[in-house]
Amino acid sequence: MHTTDDPAQATAGPPPLGEHLVAPSTRAAMTIQQEALYAAREHLRGQGFTELLPPLIGPVTDPGGRGAKALDVDYYGHPYKLMTSAILYKQASLRGFGKLFYIAPNVRVEPPETAGTGRHLVEFHQIDVEIAGASRDDAMEVAAGLLTHVVRHVLDTVGDTLAGLGRDPLAFAELLTGKFDACTHTEAVERLRGGGHPQSADAEIDWVGEETLSREADRPFFVTDYPKGSRGFYDREDPDRPGVLRNFDLIAHGGYGELVSGSEREADYATIVTRMRESGENPAKYDWYLRLAREGIPASAGFGMGVQRLVRFLTGLDALWQVSAYPKLPGVVAP
């Protein structure tokens, strides 16, 4: 029988779907995913969050970055997009729901070069959280608490499944203390350059750099203060430090890389329009969102935690496709 816990197989990519669905490692991953989602919902509901079901299509979606493309949908003759993320709807929903979350399906046609990162799928899901009136520190605290709770729940309920995949529970020992490290983007760049990696100071940490930092750590850690130009227009620019965003990533240790991206959000209409132009967007296509912004969107902070990335981290499997029942790798046409 085909198993998918072999690193060589992970690099080669998924087998035909029929084989993948019956692989023991796929079954194990789905068991762990189910418990992770249960724990996430339990934790967030316990903290007063409301779960909404996200929209799937809209006239615009998160413009994203790093070359990922949104898929077009012909919606009664109007060009709509499948959601790459529902960030704009999360912000809009704050008007009625001060603390909300989605378990949101997203589609991003990633550039083929990301097929080999082990961290990208075209179809994936996020635990998408938004908190009205929150600061970046508040959102980081929720993200850390969520991750800690999920890991503890999975260890408690399906520890034997993890053991069957060869995942050592000691890998989570430092995480369960709840004390995560943090560094700024500038510090991360310096550390990478010090190690000989040519990381750009005004761009996203690249895939190799992210994995390097992740491997060097023994517990998850935050990277904060990404430069403007590396993230979407909705990440708030620090009013006291132009060019620096009040955002964060939460990077897993052990080489698993980014689990969470989050930020304080821009809520001021004029600032949003200006930031849209800075990211090359045409404000006119964001008409519905900008109308709301003119009327007033609550200030907020929030984040998205990648479900498949979380499950890969929990299982210790080598590639993201191994923890998706229906994997679609970038650049590979799959059913």
Partner: peptide, 24 residues
Amino acid sequence: ATPGTFTEEILRQQVRFMRNNFPR
């Protein structure tokens, strides 16, 4: 077509966005 709106900061950030999003 519209000419698009540019300021020094908009141009700087759009160039950085291009480098960030399309590194190759």
